Simulated scan of single mutants.
Amino acid sequence: MKKETDHEPEDEWRSEYDFSQLQGGVRGKYAERYQAGTNLVLLDPDVAQAFPTAKAVNEALRLLIQIAERQKA
């Protein structure tokens, strides 16, 4: 008697997915960047409007860090 887990898995991909047309993929293309680590933060729309670039966000946070360090002293 066979158990349900003894059967071969069925192909669940849809017929419209033609993987033979996929070309140019590079395995591990972003592996080095991933290992370096990232800190992705999603800003609320109102904050993103005030700080539209990563540079603007970083400058504001650095200023906040300086203010906080002065308050400690």
Rank of each mutant, 00 (worst) to 15 (best):
M1D: 05
M1P: 14
K3S: 09
T5S: 12
T5A: 08
T5R: 11
H7F: 15
H7A: 04
E8C: 00
E8N: 15
P9F: 00
E10C: 08
D11C: 12
D11E: 13
D11T: 05
E12T: 09
R14P: 11
E16V: 05
Y17K: 00
D18K: 15
S20R: 00
S20F: 01
G24W: 02
G24S: 01
V26W: 00
R27Y: 13
G28W: 00
G28S: 04
G28I: 03
Y30K: 04
Y30G: 00
Y30A: 00
Y30L: 03
A31F: 08
E32K: 10
E32C: 01
R33K: 12
R33L: 01
Q35L: 02
Q35R: 03
A36H: 11
G37F: 06
G37C: 02
T38Q: 15
N39C: 07
V41E: 05
V41Q: 04
L42N: 04
L43G: 08
L43N: 14
P45F: 02
D46Y: 11
V47Q: 02
V47C: 03
A48F: 01
A48E: 00
Q49R: 09
Q49L: 13
F51L: 14
T53Q: 06
T53R: 13
A54L: 05
K55Q: 10
A56G: 04
A56T: 10
V57H: 01
V57D: 06
E59N: 12
E59H: 08
A60E: 04
A60N: 04
A60V: 09
L61I: 12
L61E: 13
R62N: 14
L63F: 07
I65K: 11
Q66Y: 06
I67E: 15
E69M: 14
E69G: 03
R70H: 12
Q71A: 13
K72T: 04
K72F: 10
A73H: 10
A73K: 15
